[in-house]
Design a protein around this nucleic acid. Structure first.
Lengths: 191, 191
DNA sequence: AAGATTTGATAACAAATGTTATCGTCTGTG
DNA sequence: CACAGACGATAACATTTGTTATCAAATCTT
């Protein structure tokens, strides 16, 4: 699982083994809740196989804000960094194989690798990228109609359309399943 | 203008003078465009007096995403950091007194102060805070109705209600001025 | 102070989106 | 194989929000 990263990091072997030993394997069925809204996020997950969504509960309706697939890492970042209650839940969509690391272990690793300047800068860049991603989401949500957002999904993240059940996609687009059905049917008949 | 920060930074006097000399004063009337959509952001502004909005042009309609007041700093961050065309414009709302620093000068200062660990960590924290702010905006937009968003504005940022013309507020809430009028009138008559 | 511009309210109508209910299909499980 | 539950389409109706137009008040300019 981690060998793909092995030669990207200038660490000696003993450190490398110490770090990778911090990760534990976890196999779970679909619809497993990995973090519940209100809890404090103490684990960072990496997906070996499967997919995961992050969602908010709003008066019983759920609102999905992100999907994650193989090789991506998932946590409720704000909760994870600040030890505050998570505003969102994290849940598997398919049955999945995951690896997780505790916040304690990750903190230790991060404080050590921050001394390596190129990794430190890389880390800062990553945080910026995350910020810019949120900006993009935000702007698209308030600028574009649901139809436009659906079309961009088709263009930019076809994997979502293929693997994710439609009611989660509707929730991701911020609309009801009924409305998503209407959008699809309109697009079909116009062609 | 900068003396309020003087004792927060462990810099010797010559460095302090060198750094503050990088800032230039600028006095502008209202509705001055400081950065145009599509341009590359090369200046970071700090507001001594006045207020500023950041907005996107979407098919002629504008969509305001942020307001800034006294003592806040403003730039199209993504454009500023990555030297990419800015997706947003920056414009004064009131006539304003500003201080600005060029990206070159700021980069020089940042690379120097990053060597001071506590400032470096502070800088990383600031970036995280910015990320969390965007998350909050984003979530509120997709979770709450315009009426709820308007009520939160009253609660959390009354300054905006007092100083900002209503059509910019409507644009900030993602609705038309007509609809904002309706919301206000409904709230009034219900009380 | 007169006229122009900006700002905000309101009404009438149109378009987008939500709600509820029904039905058919698919899929997994016993 | 049968059946329950999940998933998706569609219709009818309700609600929200946008569009266009008009008017009044406030503010700015000269």
């Amino acid at each position: 699982m981690f060998n793909q990263f092995r030669n990207k990091f200038p660490l000696d072997d003993s450190k490398w083994i110490e770090y990778t030993d911090c990760f534990k394997r976890l196999e779970v069925p679909s619809k497993t809740i990995l973090l519940k809204e209100g809890e404090i996020s103490k684990k960072l997950f990496i997906i070996e196989k499967g997919c995961i969504r992050v969602w908010f509960n709003n008066n019983g309706k759920d609102l999905t804000t992100q999907f994650f697939f193989e090789n991506q890492s998932v946590a409720s970042i704000e909760s994870f960094m600040k030890k505050s209650p998570s505003p969102a839940s994290i849940e598997t969509i398919e049955s999945s194989i995951l690896w997780w690391i505790s916040k304690n272990d990750l903190d230790k690793i991060l404080s050590e690798i921050k001394e390596i300047p190129q990794l430190r800068d890389r880390f800062i860049d990553m945080i910026f990228e995350r910020t810019f991603d949120y900006m993009k989401y935000f702007v698209s949500f308030i600028k574009d109609s649901p139809t436009q957002r659906y079309l961009s999904l088709i263009e930019e993240r076809p994997q979502i359309l293929q693997r994710i059940p439609q009611h989660y996609i509707a929730s991701y687009l911020g609309i009801t399943t009924v409305h998503l059905s209407r959008i699809k049917s309109k697009l079909l008949h116009r062609k």
